[in-house]
Amino acid sequence: MSRELYPNLRLEVFPTPFCAGCGHGILLGAMVRAVNEAGLDWDRILFVSGIGCAAWIPSPHFAADTLHTTHGRPIAFGTGALLANPELKVVVISGDGDLAAIGGNHLIHAARRNLPLTVVCANNHVYGMTGGQVAPTTPIGDCTQTSPWGAEEPPFDLCRLVDGAGGGYVARHTVFQIWQLIRSLTRALKFDGFSFVEAVSPCPTHYGKLNEIPTLGDFHRRMRGLYIDRKRWDKLSESEREGKVPTGELISR
């Protein structure tokens, strides 16, 4: 952990509980940098998270107000806090299961309302904290504890979901695209309206193990082939896009 981040962390609670190779630590650092980059006051920012590994990114690590809620509800909690005190910058950081499955309804309605709320989804395509079960984001064919022969249901594209629901700012990056990720997070934090950043994060422990991606390096190689920056994506043919996912700043309106 870089020393420049120390003032904004509760150092006494480190090290983080994240497994070796987990991408959430990278997102943790990127988030702190983005908050500082955006020039936000750490006394006026509220981090809200739900239940799951990603919910532990802000709580208790960030030296700010943190609200660790029930499963799936951080956006609703955050909406209330924001409306009660519009001076607060409210940032939700949670996982794909939390935000897209149990909390999916709150996500689309928050996007529809377009309140100045920033939602960051650490998407590792799996329920990590409970041991690795299938998520609404698990790609078809990938194995989890509850899809041991490969996931059969089509996954959500969270960015398209939020776009369709009316969210004003939408971006996606893998945690390996670190500088782009920090830039998008910064813009999201400064955006006047609902902003959503999907941070694709590796989970070697529960997801990688069952899909022959055992290490962070293996994830890096795989993601580099699957997640294509928008500038390149725009030039790809329909057939070349098959099975791939665009990244970058996708919507800003």
Binding site: L46, L67, A76, T79, G80, L83, L88, H106, H109
Partner: peptide, 21 residues
């Protein structure tokens, strides 16, 4: 605020209460 369901309502209330409401 009219929320999307009652779970959203109570959640928003808790967030608001901690924001001083």
């Amino acid at each position: 605020i009219q929320m999307e369901d009652e779970i959203g309502s109570i959640s928003a209330m808790i967030g608001a209460a901690w924001a001083g409401a």
